[in-house]
Design a protein around this nucleic acid. Sequence first.
DNA 1: AATTAAATTTATACTAAGTCTAAATACTAC
DNA 2: GTAGTATTTAGACTTAGTATAAATTTAATT
Lengths: 130, 130
Amino acid sequence: MSRLNLTTQRKAILDLVQSCEDHPTAAEIMERLRMNGHQFAYGTVYNSLRYLTDAGLIRELKLGETASRYDGRTEDHYHIVCKKCGRVDEVLSAPPADWIREVAAKTNYDVHHSQVVFEGVCYSCKHPNA
Amino acid sequence: MSRLNLTTQRKAILDLVQSCEDHPTAAEIMERLRMNGHQFAYGTVYNSLRYLTDAGLIRELKLGETASRYDGRTEDHYHIVCKKCGRVDEVLSAPPADWIREVAAKTNYDVHHSQVVFEGVCYSCKHPNA
DNA sequence: AATTAAATTTATACTAAGTCTAAATACTAC
DNA sequence: GTAGTATTTAGACTTAGTATAAATTTAATT
Ligand SMILES: [Mn+2]
Ligand SMILES: [Mn+2]
Ligand SMILES: [Zn+2]
Ligand SMILES: [Zn+2]
């Protein structure tokens, strides 16, 4: 509940994540920061990513891989992973409200949130010679 | 592609996972095996869980927690996690085919599979005094 | 049955991702 | 400017899981 405090490090990490076309892991973020001339402590990168996630400025994605990925897009959306090349693309269609209501009714839960990860083969991997 | 080989250890672990009402982690499985009088090496439990998962006899669930959970139910189904007490319940309604088709069309992927994890508050946590 | 070969288990070392700690810096409020 | 709070840093530590190599079990061959 305390007010936002964007230090140099946090700002640089926020800018970087927001500028990414993809969904980098913490390790990839550190690598890119280094390439941009920054050199922050290992722990600071993790602390900042958590801080920015808690502040709602970025999102942490747990896609079932060993490492979390980070996303500059904060609107609710989902992801699809190519099992051939590993790329992660956006899924902007939300699950139908009817289905969510049905799940809530059948499980007796208040459903607050859903994480959806699709798995499949992307266009480039499907058409390798195009 | 080799034929199934259920050793004593693998069989005991399969039986245990299939008998569970819940979705135990590897650590919980080891603990329960020990309580049932078994004493297998740490690595054997992990190896067996992988073997059984690859053989399609059990399922590995990656629900975004730090450890995988295992599931004796092998039909396609989904899960809902209570953010108060941590319990994991079954979700047996599948996402509507229309929605999956829409996702495939918009992303240009061949969609093979989807992982869905709902998050919310379970009945007991909602009605604590009942 | 004895011998060889292949698969599995075991104990233990190692890895990867992330958290924790305590000292050093930086920022705020007075 | 001083005191107090927040953050960064370096490095130790934790957790979940994998890799390795020797020992054991199982299967195949003579
Ligand atoms: Mn995204
Ligand atoms: Mn289940
Ligand atoms: Zn691909
Ligand atoms: Zn609950």
